[in-house]
Design a binder for these strands. Structure first.
Lengths: 226, 226
DNA sequence: GGGACTATATATAACTT
DNA sequence: TAAGTTATATATAGTCC
C-alpha cells in the first residue's frame, strides 16, 4: 500500500519504524472507529509506540468498559434450563472449560499492587478490594440460597481497618469522577482539567521521594524519546 | 473502499451490518497484526460483533497483558530526582492529575462480583483479592519505611476464612495454567483442550441450577444469532 | 449464510519540501 | 525533521452463486 510492498517483518531503521507507526496508528484508529459506527458495536484498541507512547481507542469512551465485557463474557450456561442428563453432561463440559478460562483471566483481575506508588493509591485499592470481597460473600450466599450473618460481614472491615492502623496510615475516601464519552486519547494530558483528589500531605511527598529512591536503585532512569 | 462510498453511520439493514462487520473485522485484525510486526510494538484489540460475538487480538498473545500495561503505565514522577521547589510543584501537579486518573481506572480493577456465576469462581476471586490486600499492606509499609506487624497481617486471612465458613462454603486452591503465545482467537472454543480445573461436585451443580433459575426469572433466555 | 469476484475507495511507502 | 504529495498496494461494497 505504497510505492513499494513492505516485507512483513520488523522495520530495522528506527526512524522509519517510528514514522510507519505514526501513520498506521492513525489508520487503525480510523478503521476501529468506522467499524464501531457502521456496525454499532463495541471496539477497544490499545497501542504502544516503539518509544512506549500509548494510544488507545474505545467506541464507548472507555477501554476499561470493553475490557470488562471481554473478561466477563456471559457464561454459555445461562442460556436456558437443563432438560435431561445428556444436556447436563454437555453443559458441564462447557462449564469446565469456562472455569479454566475464568481462572486464567482472573489472574489479571488481581491488581498489580507491586506497582502501587503512593499511600493514597494503596488506600483506593484497599477500598475497592474490600468492597469486592464483601460482595463475594453475598454472591456465594445467593448461589447457595443462604442468608449471610450480617454481623460477620461487618467483621472484615474492622479487621482491615485495624491493619491499616498498624501501618500508621490514614485513609481517605474519594468520589470517582465519571467522564463523558470521549473516544480517543493520546498520552498528552496538557490542557485537561480534572477535578482534584484529596490534598497531598507532606508525609505523602516524603513517601513518594522514598519510593523514587527505591525505584531508581533498581532501574536507573533512562527515557529515550524518539 | 468499494463500489459505493458508505455514509459513516450505522448500517440499518441487519444482514449487511453483520456482513460488513465480518469483513472489516478481519481487515482490522490484519492491520493490527501488521503494525505490531512492522513496528515491533504491543497492540491489543477487542471487538464484539453486532450479535455479541467476541474477536480479540493481542500482539503478544494476551489482551490481559497489554491491558495491564495500559492501566499500569509508569508514573511520570519516576523519571528522576526532584531538584528544587518549582520542580517539586510541577511534579506534584502531574501527580495530582495522575492520582485522579488512577482512581478512575481502579474502579475497573474491581472485579465485577455481581457476575460471579459459580461458587468456585467466587473462591478464586476471594483468593486473589485477599492476596492483593496482603501485598497492599506490604506496599504501604515499604512506602513509609516501616515494618509490618506480622501477627496482624495474618489476622485478615483468619477473619475472611471465618466468613467463608459462615456461608457454608468450602474453598479450594488451584494452579493457574499459563498458555503459550497465541495471537488471535475467536469465540469458538471447539477443539481446544485445556487442562481441567477441580472436579465439579454435586453441590456445585445444585448451586448452578439455582443460579440459572434466578437469572431466568430476571431476564428470560433470548439468544438471537445472526 | 458463506465464499468468490471486481470496480472502486482508501491507506500508505517513498518522495519532496 | 515534521508536514505535504504521489504512485502504488490494499481493503472492501455490491454482486453473483
Amino acid at each position: 500500500m505504497g510505492r513499494k510492498k513492505l516485507a512483513m517483518r520488523r522495520i530495522e531503521n528506527p526512524t522509519s519504524r517510528q514514522v510507519t507507526y505514526a501513520k498506521r496508528k492513525d489508520g487503525i484508529v480510523k478503521k476501529a472507529s468506522e467499524l464501531s459506527v457502521l456496525c454499532d458495536t463495541d471496539v477497544a484498541l490499545i497501542m504502544f509506540s516503539p518509544a512506549g507512547r500509548l494510544t488507545n481507542f474505545a467506541s464507548n469512551g472507555r477501554v476499561e468498559d470493553i475490557f470488562l465485557r471481554f473478561v466477563d463474557r456471559p457464561d454459555e450456561l445461562r442460556g436456558g434450563p437443563i432438560h435431561n442428563e445428556e444436556d447436563l453432561e454437555e453443559k458441564l463440559e462447557k462449564l469446565n472449560r469456562r472455569q479454566c478460562e475464568a481462572q486464567d483471566k482472573m489472574r489479571y483481575y488481581e491488581p498489580d499492587v507491586e506497582k502501587i506508588n503512593s499511600v493514597l493509591e494503596a488506600g483506593v485499592y484497599r477500598q475497592f478490594l474490600t468492597s469486592a470481597i464483601h460482595r463475594i460473600q453475598l454472591s456465594k450466599a445467593k448461589l447457595l440460597g443462604n442468608e449471610l450473618d450480617p454481623q460477620r460481614t461487618e467483621n472484615i472491615e474492622a479487621t482491615i481497618d485495624h491493619m491499616e492502623d498498624a501501618a500508621s496510615v490514614t485513609d481517605h475516601s474519594f468520589n470517582v469522577n465519571q467522564n463523558g464519552m470521549s473516544s480517543m486519547r493520546d498520552e498528552d494530558l496538557s490542557g485537561t482539567s480534572l477535578p482534584m483528589g484529596p490534598h497531598l500531605s507532606l508525609s505523602f511527598i516524603e513517601a513518594q521521594r522514598q519510593w523514587n529512591r527505591l525505584s531508581n536503585e533498581l532501574s536507573p532512569p533512562s527515557f529515550d524519546n524518539y
